Computed example of a mutant assay.
Amino acid sequence: MTQEKKTQDFGNDPLKVRDTDHYKDEYVSGFVDKWDELIDWDGRANSEGDFFIKLLKEHGAKKVLDVAAGTGFHSVRLLESGFEVTSADGSPEMLAKAFENGRKRGHILRTVHADWRFLNKSVHDLYDAVICLGNSFTHLHSDNDRRKTLAEFYATLRHDGILILDQRNYDALLDHQVQPTHNYYYCGDNVKASPEHIDESLARFRYEFPDKSVYHLNMFPLRKEYVRKLMRDIGFQKVTTYGDFKETYREAEPDFFIHVAEKRYIEGENE
């Protein structure tokens, strides 16, 4: 039996760690155990309201694949709103925590351990919607990994399905327009989340908890228009982007962008 890793290892030069597979070493059990302090389920539910629930219902979605389940926040919320949900994640530690959180709330989560790049090896069904939330897509560090992942998401959707994918507003960070807050997705009052380094191919974030423990995540700073173009390149017909749950916004203001990509064929669509 392998021993759970409690501490992260970024080597002698953390800024050189720009590899998709490293996420397995970032979500160590010590960090996962504290993740819900960072999220604050009640705070997050209040901040986003019923945005995702309404969006899914507007598109007629009933069966949802949560590919970045994390500790289960959205999976549980959607289950409690009447959706049929499958919860997937690349981190077995996260899936175990999600299952535990679901059970505490009276639910048995249907979980799948899956690497997005090979999603359809592990997931053998079609869904009305795929959701990839919590800034998770930025864990993919290469263009090839992102394209392969989006193709896998596309393949598991029904012919008229939708993908809902969010990301931090890295444009504002890269262009030095604003410092990030955590008013929406990171709602824990006593947790500090701040960027230690950012350049065109790395955003390194530091997370400090009340007990003085510190963890890091190395992510790729995705520009908004790049993500929208990727989605269209893969075959999604229409991409609508919201800023902090609003359809109208100034580019530098939102902390997060939320992309809704539609698979259904729209004749003459050229967005």
Rank of each mutant, 00 (worst) to 15 (best):
S81H: 10
E58Q: 09
D125C: 05
K246V: 06
G235L: 13
L119Y: 03
K121H: 10
A114S: 10
S122G: 12
P180L: 07
Y242A: 06
H141Q: 13
G134I: 03
E4Q: 12
M1Y: 13
Q177W: 13
D171M: 09
L140S: 07
S29G: 11
K16G: 12
D13G: 10
N120G: 09
H259M: 11
F153Y: 11
T248E: 12
C187L: 05
Y23K: 10
D42T: 14
E251N: 02
W116A: 02
Y185C: 02
N183F: 12
Y265K: 10
S75Y: 02
R103V: 14
D66L: 02
Y215R: 00
E26T: 15
N101S: 10
R147P: 05
R223K: 13
G72E: 02
T181W: 14
D33C: 08
E225W: 07
Y154I: 08
R264A: 09
Q179V: 10
G106S: 08
K57G: 07
T156S: 11
F137L: 03
G106F: 05
D160Y: 08
F236Y: 09
D36G: 04
G102L: 04
V112D: 01
G188K: 06
F209C: 13
T240Y: 00
V28T: 14
R110I: 12
L109Y: 00
N218M: 08
D125F: 04
Y207W: 15
K212F: 11
Q179R: 15
T181M: 14
R250P: 04
N12R: 14
W35R: 02
E84A: 11
K121A: 14
W35N: 05
E37C: 12
